[in-house]
């Protein structure tokens, strides 16, 4: 049992936080885990990428090799597209659809989404609207996290437990919104089968 995941988004979206929480949930579930990321210049509204590998066997490479991701988790549609080369044949995509246009030459969003829909396994989620409905637009990353988590071969509830623990440091409202957003993300996936490499 193993799963290789690449997460992509824009600096400030909480991509690294989610990658870390997923890794903690998997470690807590008894898996070998390696999770890598790049900080630094990329945090200033630039492109951000994180890797997360889980396996019941020891893991070697710190990064998911290009062409090997079982799951590509996008927090922003253009960033999902930027990282498409990581996706394995038959790999799954979960992506938010709201564009963050903090750059010159952002292509028309319809074109970006059409491109993503070419992948039959892509699940496009209006994470922004879902997060708003869950009570906080800032919980968008947790909607995506909830969706991604339910596609991983992990014990249901593990991520929620990790988030709850983390939320002890947040305001009550933030914590509640995150938990609700996780559930909303899971619901958005429906009953899709987990990925496995």
């Amino acid at each position: 049992m193993r799963a290789d995941v690449v997460l992509a988004g824009v600096g400030g979206q909480g991509v690294l936080t989610i990658a870390r929480l997923l890794a903690e949930a998997a470690a807590n579930d008894g898996f070998h885990v390696v999770q890598g990321e790049l900080h630094g210049m990329s945090q200033r509204g630039g492109a951000v990428q994180a890797h997360f590998r889980l396996s019941d066997q020891p893991i070697e490479s710190p990064q998911v090799p290009r062409g090997r991701a079982d799951l590509l988790v996008g927090f922003e549609p253009l960033e999902t597209l930027r990282n498409i080369a990581w996706l394995a044949p038959g790999g799954r995509i979960v992506t938010a659809i709201r564009p963050i246009e903090n750059m010159p030459g952002y292509p028309p969003i319809e074109q970006v989404l059409a491109e993503l829909r070419r992948f039959p396994e892509a699940i496009l989620i209006d994470a922004h609207a879902t997060a708003l409905a869950a009570g906080s637009q800032r919980a968008e990353n947790f909607v995506i996290a909830g969706a991604a988590f339910s596609l991983l071969p992990l014990t249901p509830g593990k991520l929620r437990a990790i988030v709850r623990k983390r939320a002890e440091r947040w305001t009550e409202r933030e914590g509640e919104a995150a938990i609700k957003a996780l559930a909303a993300g899971r619901a958005a996936i429906g009953g899709a089968e987990p990925v496995h490499g």
Binding site: V10, G11, M41, S42, Q43, R44, G45, G46, A47, P65, R66, G67, R68, L78, E79, L81, R82, I84, A85, L87, P89, N102, M103, P104, G105, Y106, P107, Q111, V112, E115, R118, F119
Partner: peptide, 19 residues
């Protein structure tokens, strides 16, 4: 390995920026 690619010719760069 066979890699997927975007048929949108190129995905424009998203450089880091001042807040």
């Amino acid at each position: 390995l066979q890699l997927h690619e975007s048929v949108l010719l190129n995905v424009p760069a998203r450089p880091p920026r001042l807040c």
